[in-house]
Design a protein around this nucleic acid. Structure first.
Lengths: 202, 202
DNA sequence: AGAAAAATGGAGTGTCAACTCCAAAACTGG
DNA sequence: CCAGTTTTGGAGTTGACACTCCATTTTTCT
């Protein structure tokens, strides 16, 4: 439903099943190539169920964005909270690379793919994704600030710019890895970004 | 036509008009959301004309990839051939940023957008785009090698890795700029990459 | 000029995808 | 246990889209 109606536990589970199925399909095929029927089959629900929980396909897409945002930011929190050393930074790198390898380099970044797909066709989606990226950037910035506070990085660095550049490296690396079907581009992109940070250590 | 049939000058012009229109539309809406009818209208051609020059939509997509590759690599040649100083590198940066600004940050990178759109749905397209990126990467690598030869960069740098990382920064910066509708992310991403190179100058 | 080849016009055609609708089953709260 | 609400089933409906077909005009080549 477009507006919140009371959702039973069972209803919530169904809704979640739909969003999960849609997320996976849209990551692989893109939004436009993912049909409602595909989602119905994958989530084992009927048409009326789907339209009971979502106003239309667009509404479902927004739910997918939120889900993927939670998922990605969850992983990033795991890797970036309490960032206190270069060692921890490398562990974060390994986390991302391992995740991509686990997926066989398929799909690229869930947020990046949605962004590229929707940026020009759905202003609401674009704004929401911009917000997701801003949060991600914030985690990186906090991590760098923490390293400054601990004396791992010089105090006069521009954490804002470095966080943004780092995020760009991750996104670019993921895209190239998706195209090339190797984790190499992501590895090199992030390693180079970290190498640059090392030149800024105290 | 799928196989080469002799093309009249007029025929070639029509074909080009179709590819140009398709390129523009697909950059903005993505491949799946661009209909043959849209392309017909934009290129001022009839259905029979379109299918006279292309076997099907897929075939047209490949032509679009080739066109965008030529376009992007053309600009990159312009900025990267005879790269002899950091000044020239910054000029290249300004070239890309200016180009993005001219388009109002719409569409992102023509190759990156196609890659994200087609990587998981069209293996032929993915391979061709991988090749396009490899060429781009080659231009960067040659540029860095030239700077080494001129004594601008240390001779012991890994030009392969740095070129790949540079490309990732550009791609990531373009994606984030597209989402945020500001050239800032691209600027910061490329500037940071250049800053890292400066730490490797002789 | 004149035959062959290329380019064009535009009305179909079949399929598929998003969304609707009505009724029935399952669940909730008092 | 009963009334109201939520959840589910599944057969339509409507429109859109990729692609076809055949006739006609234009161009090429000798």
């Amino acid at each position: 439903m477009v507006k919140e109606a009371r959702l039973t536990a069972k209803g919530l589970a169904t809704r979640q099943r739909i969003v999960d199925a849609a997320s996976e399909l849209m990551l692989e095929r893109g939004v436009a190539r993912t049909t409602i029927e595909d989602i119905q089959d994958a989530a084992k629900v009927s048409a009326s169920q789907l339209y009971h929980y979502f106003a239309d396909k667009n509404d479902l897409v927004l739910a997918v964005i939120d889900r993927q945002t939670d998922l990605v930011l969850g992983v990033q929190h795991q890797g970036l909270d309490r960032l206190d050393s270069f060692e921890a930074l490398v562990a974060w790198r390994d986390l991302i690379v391992g995740m991509l390898r686990g997926l066989g380099c398929v799909g690229g970044c869930p947020l990046g793919s949605l962004a590229s797909d929707l940026a020009e066709t759905d202003p609401v989606a674009r704004a929401r994704l911009a917000n997701s990226f801003a949060q991600w950037e914030g985690l990186l910035r906090s991590g760098l600030a923490a390293m400054c506070a601990r004396g791992e990085l010089r105090a006069d660095i521009d954490a804002d710019d470095l966080a943004l550049a780092m995020l760009a490296s991750v996104q670019g690396g993921l895209l190239l890895s998706q195209v090339r079907r190797t984790t190499k581009p992501l590895e090199v992109a992030v390693d180079t970004a970290i190498a640059h940070l090392r030149t800024l250590s105290v």
